[in-house]
Design a protein around this nucleic acid. Structure first.
Length: 945
RNA sequence: GCGGGGGUUGCCGAGCUAGGUCAAAGGCGACAGACUCAAGAUCUGUUCCCGUAGGGGUUCGCCGGUUCGAAUCCGGCCCCCCGCACCA
């Protein structure tokens, strides 16, 4: 078969007859979507796997009689396309070369390539060019997509839709403006992402939230210490300040804070109205007394060189009862009498004693106990780190705040969340200070700090009602593979506030502040609903400005008065009706197919936004996911140079072969490794299979009396057919195709061995119709071609599956054949082990009494088996019966009854042919006394040389 | 750190949510035979170890447990991979 021209032929016919443009009609429907691709380049085989899987599912559902909608659109929102256009404008050689490569996939003429890439200085041109090419690629893959509904995400009509969506979320109270901490480079004046930070990919930088606690100084200023464990404030004995550090007096609103200079530089980016009003050295602070906020005790400021002025506020408070570092520093200081240098007296030092505030089994004074136990001698001991970890872990799991903690007494450490922090903040003695989890710089070497944007818009996913709906839907919907359900629950729990607007990029302007653009994942959450009406908007040339929120309210939610809306929007009533009808028919989205990379962002938002906006009956029906594709063991990436564009598939491999390879090379769930060697072996087998089908088309369908071989093949086929349907339904596409192509091929070959080629063809012709149908989802072009060559004038792509002809399934017959084959195998093994040339082979089947006993004891527990067996009267001695039963128990085989002798007589010639020797069955001649060995389904064998 | 997934015979990879029919599917690779002047392709067979009668032995990351019986269930340990937010 000339696959290439067959592909083209049917793609054109499908397009011409618009067979994948479903209409609203009676009967069951199925609405499947695959996320639209981002249009910053050409598509490759990795994308191809996901879209192919989507198409296979869509086509299978069609086969099952569903009216299937499979639409597609294009994503252009965000900054990447913009950045590419900028780079090209600036003449960035690398980017220009990359994009020339992309364009060369489609254009032969180098001049034309130049010209096109030059046009890419406009970001819209990039999106438009690649979207056009993507349509071409998708068509060339035979995907059954309804292209009338396509759009891209920067179109005004789509913008209107996204605005409406945000309006709905706003009404729910989850669109908020507020403070948001993020990593930031003051020198660059920009937020920095993981990609911008040096070693950011290998050594993650996260944002830590410290509680800043204000200790009142005599002059009314606050010395501000930062901590990650605010509940320990009750055990504070002193503050630590670096005597060599430079500190600053900083006006914060109407207060004055003392923090390190470095901390001031950070605070500027975290709070408004912050101003440095003076310097103060660390030395000057030492020896002063400050008032702690919990109980109003006065505590002393002590020197400590371990205090890092470039971490948080540069001031820490000391809890020597529970922090090994603090404890050891205090011990060292007392011992060295260094404090005298700062004019602190021994009496004052003696006042500073650990205050235990956490009760925990096994410890008297936790920090002291662990330091002594580990033999830690001074504060430079590296094991302090470990000691801290141990104490923290023990306290976390079994510690309880004691009576010194006022109203917090009795709370377990692992149950304390923000109570103490919030309490301090409510007294105006606490605040939040953000710090990076490690010291970090940008790739250019600029310092990275945490800045707080206070005009940031975000979606707040944290409300309880919302998460509850999300969990409810996650429980209800289909997940394939099932394991992703639990993962989704975890993700929904983890969701929190998420910024949803940026200053740059293509997309939809933020409705409440036009300077902001809605961020690209936030605008792609419920767009599947837009597919239901996009073609109506297009065909009726409805301008974006007419798509006022009331229109969407009516179409998607059924709210409002149609007549009024029609007047207000200028859209005729019948068109509004049509949109509503179309939406009501297609929604919900029955299945969303994509890859697991989308779990924690897109798919989570997909669920959350649906449950927030739509009534429960319109929530998504399910999610299915296929794994990554790699090539020859390596990740596919442009930089590795191992990308195969989707546009080359038809030319170089053949589309149906590619589709089949995607289907069988790996379970949908797992990583698929594209291997050229495997692909070429698959090609051979596939071509052979197709050739076999082609050769059978002309044959006359098998009719009349059927022999047992005929019945056997029909039984095998319809068993597999039935299994395959079941497998396809459960997304076991690989199993189904292995079953229907490769295992079936083996059956047919086996059958042909018995009945010859001519009869085999007739048989294949007999099952061909059903066979082609079930193969259609995976190899649609080949199936369509063979279907028509069979003389059919419908599209197999639109045919319905026939139910399996169960009357043909004959288990006993299949068991008989299996029995014969395992016997042949046994004989072969004997021949090979014994290294003998057979002249004649004697086969002795198990005597009837053995079958009788077997039938009797097969369901009896092993303990009673012998006893039961003895009850049967047999023509042999009891000892032999016991021996036989023991063997049965040992082999533990399950078999159903067949008439062995009858089968062997029937297959005698076949066995003789396979072995190359004469066969005699149940002869009285038994020179080596083999007969007693015979077991049900395992005859005794004697080979005569 | 938190969350998720996984370690299977030369390699890749099923099976392991319902324990026995599992020495463990399938593919790749390798070996042998058929075909061919030859190579390739194709077909057949073999591919953990031992064995001149269909048998036996040792395997499914490591250690232990449950069971008549575990690659499959339970506990502990070791190792690997992925995600962790403003990024499409």
């Amino acid at each position: 078969m000339d696959f290439k021209s067959v592909e083209r032929k049917w793609q054109e016919k499908w397009k011409e007859d618009r067979i994948f443009e479903p209409k609203v009609k009676e009967g069951k429907k199925f609405f499947i979507t695959v996320p639209y691709p981002y249009m910053s380049g050409s598509l490759h085989i990795g994308h191809g796997r996901t879209f192919t899987m989507g198409d296979i599912i869509a086509r299978f559902k069609r086969l099952q009689g569903y009216n299937v909608l499979f639409p597609m659109a294009f994503h252009v929102t965000g900054t990447p396309v913009l950045a590419i256009a900028d780079s090209i404008k600036k003449g960035d050689e690398k980017v220009i070369a990359l994009y020339k490569d992309y364009v060369r996939i489609y254009e032969k003429d180098e001049k034309r390539v130049e010209e096109i890439v030059r046009s890419f200085v406009e970001p819209e041109n990039i999106a438009k060019y690649f979207a056009d090419k993507a349509i071409h690629d998708f068509l060339s893959m035979g995907y059954s997509i309804d292209w009338r509904r396509r759009f891209h995400t920067a179109e005004p009509i789509y913008n209107k839709f996204v605005e409406w969506q945000f309006q709905k979320l706003y009404e729910k109270g989850v669109i908020k403006k507020g403070k948001y901490p993020l990593t930031y480079s003051p020198a660059d004046g920009n937020p920095v992402g993981e990609d911008d930070i040096k070693d950011g990919d290998t050594d993650k930088v996260s944002i830590m939230e410290f509680t800043a606690i204000k200790f009142r100084m005599d002059n009314g200023n606050y010395l501000v210490a930062a901590t990650l464990r605010p509940e320990t404030i009750f055990g504070v004995t002193n503050l630590w300040v670096n005597p060599n550090g430079n500190y600053a007096r900083v006006r914060v609103g109407d207060e004055t804070w003392v923090i390190s200079n470095e901390a001031y530089e950070k605070l500027k980016y975290q709070k408004r109205d912050v101003e440095k009003i003076g310097d103060i050295s660390g030395r000057e602070l030492i020896g002063k007394y400050v008032e702690e906020p919990a109980n109003g005790r006065k505590v002393i400021v002590l020197p400590a060189e371990f205090v890092d002025v470039d971490n948080a506020t540069g001031v820490v408070y000391s809890v020597p009862a529970h922090a090994p570092y603090d404890y050891q520093a205090l011990v060292d200081l007392k011992k060295s009498k260094e404090y005298e240098k700062y004019g602190i007296s021994e009496e004052e030092m003696n006042e500073v004693e650990p205050i235990k505030i956490i009760d925990i089994k096994g410890y008297d004074m936790p920090a002291r106990d662990i330091c002594e136990k580990m033999g830690i001698e001074n504060q430079k001991d590296a094991r302090l780190e470990e000691a801290t970890k141990i104490i923290y872990k023990d306290e976390f799991y079994s510690g309880v705040l004691n009576e010194k903690c006022g109203k917090f007494a009795g709370i377990k450490i692992n149950e304390i969340k923000d109570e103490v922090k919030n309490w301090l903040i409510s007294m105006n003695r606490g605040d939040v200070f953000y710090e990076t989890s490690r010291k970090a710089v940008t790739r250019n070497g600029n310092k990275v700090i945490v800045a707080v944007l206070d005009e940031q818009w975000f979606i707040d996913y944290s409300p309880k009602w919302w998460k509850e709906l999300g969990h409810k839907e996650t429980d209800k919907m289909i997940f394939y593979p099932e394991k992703y359900r639990d993962m989704m629950h975890g993700i929904i729990d983890w969701l929190d506030k998420r910024p949803c607007a940026r200053k740059r990029g293509l997309g939809t302007r933020f409705p409440w502040n036009r300077e902001w653009i809605i961020e690209s994942l936030s605008d792609s959450t419920i767009y599947m609903s837009f597919y239901t009406i996009a073609h109506i908007i297009r065909e009726n040339k409805i301008e974006a400005k007419k798509l006022i929120p009331e229109v969407f309210d009516y179409v998607f939610l059924g709210n409002g008065d149609k007549k009024e809306i029609s007047e207000k929007s200028g859209i005729p009533e019948e068109i509004i009706d049509k949109m509503r009808e179309e939406f009501e028919y297609w929604y919900p989205n029955d299945l969303r197919h994509t890859s697991p990379a989308h779990m924690s962002n897109h798919l989570a938002f997909f669920i959350m936004h649906h449950v927030a906006i739509f009534p429960e009956e319109l929530w998504p029906g399910g999610i299915s996911l296929n794994g990554l594709m790699i090539r020859e063991g390596a990740k596919i990436s442009k930089s590795k140079g191992n990308v195969i564009p989707l546009a080359h598939i038809s030319e170089r491999y053949g589309v149906d072969l590619f589709r089949l390879y995607c289907a069988v090379a790996a379970d949908m769930d797992t990583v698929m490794d594209w291997k050229e060697a495997e692909l070429s072996s698959l090609r051979k087998r596939f071509e052979k299979f197709v050739a076999m089908l082609e050769a059978s088309i002309g044959a006359e369908e098998l009719s009349g009396e059927m022999n047992h071989y005929d019945r056997w093949l029909l039984s095998r086929f319809y068993r597999r057919y039935e299994e395959s349907i079941e497998q396809m339904e459960h997304f076991k596409i690989r199993d189904a195709m292995l079953n229907m192509i490769f295992h079936l091929s083996n059956d047919i070959r086996y059958y042909e061995k018995h009945v010859g080629e001519e009869r085999s063809r007739k048989m294949v012709r007999k099952i061909m119709e059903d066979l082609l149908k079930i193969l259609t989802p995976v190899i649609p072009h080949t199936a369509e071609e063979l279907w028509h060559r069979m003389g059919k004038n419908t599209y197999i792509s639109l045919e319905k599956l026939s139910p399996p002809k169960k009357e043909y399934i004959d288990e006993t017959l299949e068991n008989e054949m299996e029995y014969v084959d395992s016997l042949i195998e046994d004989i072969r093994e004997i021949l090979s082990v014994a290294k003998i040339e057979p002249k004649k082979i004697y086969i002795y089947t198990a005597e009837p009494w053995k079958w009788e006993i077997y039938e009797k004891i097969k369901d009896v527990s092993p303990k009673n088996a012998i006893k039961e067996a003895m009850k049967i009267e047999v023509p042999v001695e009891k000892g032999e019966v016991a021996k036989f039963v023991k063997r049965i128990l040992k082999e533990k085989r399950k078999f159903s009854k067949i008439d062995e002798r009858k089968v062997l007589e029937r297959e005698r010639d076949y066995i003789a042919r396979e072995i190359g020797a004469d066969i005699e069955i149940d002869s009285d001649y038994d020179p080596k006394n083999k007969k007693p060995i015979a077991m049900p389904l395992k005859p005794a064998i004697y080979v005569e040389q």
